[in-house]
Design a protein around this nucleic acid. Structure first.
Lengths: 168, 168
DNA sequence: GATGAAAACAATAAGCC
DNA sequence: GGCTTATTGTTTTCATC
């Protein structure tokens, strides 16, 4: 079945609603360079600037593009250390988990929180200015938390960010 | 010693060279919104647009700001699964490690590669379209690699990105 | 949906403090 | 460093297809 026109019953698909090739190209280009100007973008995908603008707006409105962020060298900002901390939660009560999940992303130095399957419950990506600051972070905010039963810190020697290929 | 002027011998500091408060604010603002226009940025930090432009340029030139990227909802692009894969390397020869480190970020679906201390050597953040695609990725690119002795996959249930606080 | 043309706005260069 | 002004270029709206 090639195109499924005239489907009578169900519903017209909820959110991301078909991204075509041009949409994917735009996402790809803006992932690689989030400040690429609209007219350059337009030329790159072969659209008029006004059309391109409409497309990009629609991608943002549909939540396909969530936002744009500067990628910063934290070492240059006095945070030369990064770590990944594997965390286990003891009390698996909904409340404890929600509290932890809400509190952690607001702690200073926190970059990302992953809730994961497997032996650990969370993986926390943090930055710190010194080994002591990292130790203090773990002791004050993780070890001291009654919900946390285990926290294992691994230093990050190197972090390579890949630009995801967004084609089918 | 307040300012260390007239230091005769050493050298005038190599790269990030003192970031002042305005620099930090700019970094903070551009981390939160990488597409904030220069004139809005200028107003937010209390500078003239031209001056602000010079500052931001300098931040990029000094590598404090490495780039700008769209934050994309991969699920909307047909990659609803994400995983973190803990990897151990057997042969700890320099060549094997370099090869692994070079090859992995180019594999399809790879988002980030962390080289870490501790029991594991790497932590790989990937996206996939289906559980089968994830399994194929692990089997073809990790298990099949002679340098890899162990690969343990954890599904990511949720990923919360924090906006780092860049103040001192 | 896509377009081109016009109006509105932002980025940049130059000269000066 | 920073500011202002003048210029260039980009974004955005709108009427039209």
């Amino acid at each position: 079945m090639p195109k499924d026109r005239r489907s009578p019953g169900p519903a017209p698909r909820p959110v991301p609603d078909g991204l075509d090739d041009v949409d994917r190209q735009l996402v790809q280009l803006l992932t690689a360079d989030g400040r690429m100007p609209n007219n350059a973008l337009a030329e790159a995908v072969g659209l008029a600037p006004s059309t391109c603008l409409t497309r990009v707006r629609s991608l943002r409105e549909r939540g396909v593009i969530r936002g744009f962020h500067a990628d910063v060298d934290l070492a240059a900002l006095g945070q030369p250390l990064q770590a990944l901390i594997a965390i286990r939660i003891g009390a698996h009560s909904r409340d404890e988990i929600d509290r932890f999940r809400t509190k952690v992303p607001r702690l200073p130095g926190v970059l990302s929180l992953f809730h994961v399957s497997g032996a650990n419950d969370y993986l926390l990506h943090v930055s710190a200015s010194t080994p002591d600051a990292l130790r203090e972070f773990v002791l004050n905010h993780l070890t001291a938390d009654p919900a946390v039963t285990h926290a294992e810190t691994s230093l990050i020697f190197e972090h390579v960010r890949a630009t995801p290929d967004v084609r089918h």
